[in-house]
Amino acid sequence: MPELRTERLLLRAWQPADLAPWAAMNADPEVRRYFPEVLTREQSEASVARFQADLDERGWGWWAVEVRATGEFIGFTGLDPVDEDMPFTGVEAGWRLTRSAWGHGYATEAARAALTFGFTTLGLPEIVAVTTATNLRSQAVMRRLGMACDPADDFDDPDVPDGPLRRCVVYRISAGTALS
């Protein structure tokens, strides 16, 4: 499984030591603000097992992210096939970082590495990113990555109850745009 390195970050396999900070992150209501609920430790542990299994099987997926200078685990970034119940297909880029990592440009830096991997190593023609219509911080990252949103792609997530988190926006970037 490849590791991805940026100037400041390492995107890598999940390690047992990641579980406690990952679970704490997923129990933080502010980190989970744009999700229907916080996660239990058991749910966080199950997600890590799924993430690592995907990395082992495919060689790509949701990588754990650490700060190279300190070795601190700060969240995840990566690529994953779009869920079958979504109104579009393809591969999705995503990220989630602990609050202490917000505002340092880490999400953009890590996501850019994942996009580069997707286009150059996997040969993907396009990568999408999805978030709630109210998550302006993630949308700002998407725009910094060169992604564009078409309101015709907006949709209501069938897995989210009615309310402000149900409406989602889709950002897209093509290989030609990203590599030019």
Score class of each variant (00 low, 15 high):
5 R>A: 11
6 T>I: 11
7 E>F: 00
16 P>G: 08
16 P>T: 06
21 P>V: 02
24 A>N: 10
25 M>K: 01
27 A>V: 10
31 V>D: 09
31 V>L: 15
34 Y>V: 11
35 F>R: 13
35 F>Y: 14
40 T>L: 10
41 R>V: 15
42 E>S: 11
44 S>M: 05
45 E>S: 14
50 R>T: 06
52 Q>G: 10
56 D>G: 05
57 E>N: 04
59 G>N: 05
62 W>I: 09
64 A>Q: 05
69 A>Q: 10
69 A>F: 07
71 G>I: 14
74 I>Y: 03
76 F>K: 08
77 T>V: 14
77 T>W: 10
84 E>V: 08
85 D>Y: 13
88 F>A: 00
89 T>P: 00
90 G>Y: 04
90 G>V: 09
91 V>K: 08
93 A>G: 13
100 S>W: 11
102 W>G: 00
105 G>F: 08
108 T>G: 03
111 A>V: 02
117 F>Q: 02
122 L>C: 01
124 L>E: 00
129 A>P: 06
138 S>I: 07
138 S>H: 05
141 V>L: 04
141 V>S: 01
143 R>D: 01
143 R>E: 15
144 R>G: 04
145 L>A: 02
148 A>L: 14
150 D>F: 14
151 P>Q: 06
154 D>G: 01
160 V>D: 05
175 A>Q: 15
177 T>F: 03
180 S>D: 15
